[in-house]
Simulated assay, not measured.
Amino acid sequence: MRAVVQLGYGGPPEVLGVRELDLPSLGDGEVLVRVRAASVHPDVWHVVTGLPRALRLMGSGVRRPSNVVPGTDMAGEVESVGAGVTRLRPGDEVLGETLGGMQWRNGGAYAEYVAVAEDALAVKPSQVTFEQAATVPTAGLIALANLPDQDQAPSQRVLVNGAGGGVGAIAVQLARSWGAQVTAVDHTRKLDLLRALGADRVIDYTTDDVTRSSDRYDLVFDVVGNHPFSAYRRVLADDGAYGLIGHDQFGAQGRRWLGSIPRMFGLMARSPVERRLPRPSFKAPDRTASMARLRDLLEDGAITPVVARAFPLEQVPDALELLASGQAVGRIVVVP
């Protein structure tokens, strides 16, 4: 099969190329998927560049990636199934995430075929394209894991900062599905997209600082983390909640060794005395249940992915550079 191969850490044009590799072998409970589309998202950029450097100690590989094929989420067709697989069969159209747990490592999705655990896959709704479906798993799982459940949501006024990216766009749509009033913050070029996704109000961060507003929000869902929590306290309701995803803006913030890790630990340390911060939880969500929920949201139209551009395997470096530029309006995918 043809696959993108990463030979080291660095700029995508310098470390990525397309090679012929053997088909993946299947273990018990695994499915061989013919990849029709795979998403381009920030975790992939981090593993290709090796930034922040701490990620290399979290399973990626110290000097070079232990798995040489990048990509973590995809959509495609089941080619064959391994022993113990009971839910899927050849010919099924699926979407899913190729890795469990920590995503700062390669998962093999940028290839013509990939082996995936059955419990990481959901059947693709028929009205959703492979390109759309491929954009959902990683971003959707992050959004589900960090947003409150609808019946526990802190009322109706929700602010999403970084709303035009993968996680932010899903957060906007999920909050709208609750019936919340959603304010979406992003760059000028993405405001029309956010209106189309259902945002009640949009704010252009290039001209307005949302933390200086007189408005108050019951939930601040902060994807990009370009303001400290102390700034958001000014716009949070007394009983509101704040959640940080911790996007490092592709190294622009200069934290090349630890990235946003110190900030995340700092917020966790404050959570016992700051009621508006979530209590830390180290229990992983049930992946099969979460994928099934994402599948239902796609089926019902509560989530409608917008694809900006598709790239062939040979142009994955260009795809990653477009992602890091912030110019894309919608999601970027790779089509083997």
Rank of each mutant, 00 (worst) to 15 (best):
M1E: 00
R2H: 01
V5N: 09
V5C: 13
Q6G: 05
L7C: 01
P12M: 04
E14F: 06
L16C: 00
V18D: 02
R19F: 11
L21M: 01
L21S: 03
L21K: 01
L26F: 09
E30D: 07
L32S: 05
L32T: 08
L32M: 05
V40Y: 02
H41W: 02
D43Q: 13
V44R: 07
T49A: 04
T49Q: 03
L51Y: 04
R53W: 10
L55E: 09
G59P: 05
G59L: 12
G61S: 05
G61T: 07
V62K: 00
V62A: 09
R64D: 03
P65L: 09
S66F: 10
P70A: 13
M74F: 09
G76F: 10
G76L: 09
G84W: 07
V85P: 05
V85K: 15
G96M: 06
E97D: 09
M102C: 15
E112Y: 00
V114N: 02
V114K: 02
V114W: 04
E118M: 03
D119P: 01
D119Y: 14
P125E: 13
Q127S: 03
Q132D: 12
T135S: 13
T135M: 10
V136G: 04
P137M: 12
L141P: 01
L141R: 12
A143T: 08
Q150F: 10
A153Y: 01
S155C: 14
G162K: 00
G166V: 08
G166H: 03
L174D: 03
A175G: 06
S177T: 15
W178K: 02
V185Y: 05
D192S: 11
A199H: 07
D200H: 14
V202C: 14
I203S: 09
T207D: 02
T207R: 14
V210G: 00
T211E: 01
S214M: 03
Y217P: 08
L219W: 14
V220D: 11
V224R: 04
N226P: 00
P228C: 04
A231V: 00
Y232F: 15
R233W: 02
R234I: 04
R234T: 12
A237D: 15
D238I: 04
G240C: 04
A241W: 10
A241C: 09
Y242A: 13
G246P: 07
D248K: 02
Q249M: 13
G254K: 12
R255P: 00
G259H: 08
S260Y: 00
P262N: 11
F265W: 13
R270Y: 06
V273S: 09
R276N: 11
R276Q: 14
P278N: 05
K283V: 15
P285F: 05
D286F: 09
A289E: 14
A292K: 11
R293I: 01
R295Q: 15
D296N: 13
G301I: 00
I303V: 15
P305H: 12
V306S: 05
V306N: 00
V307Y: 01
A310N: 00
P312H: 06
P312N: 04
P312W: 07
V316G: 03
D318Y: 01
E321P: 00
A328I: 03
G330D: 08
G330I: 06
R331I: 04
R331T: 06
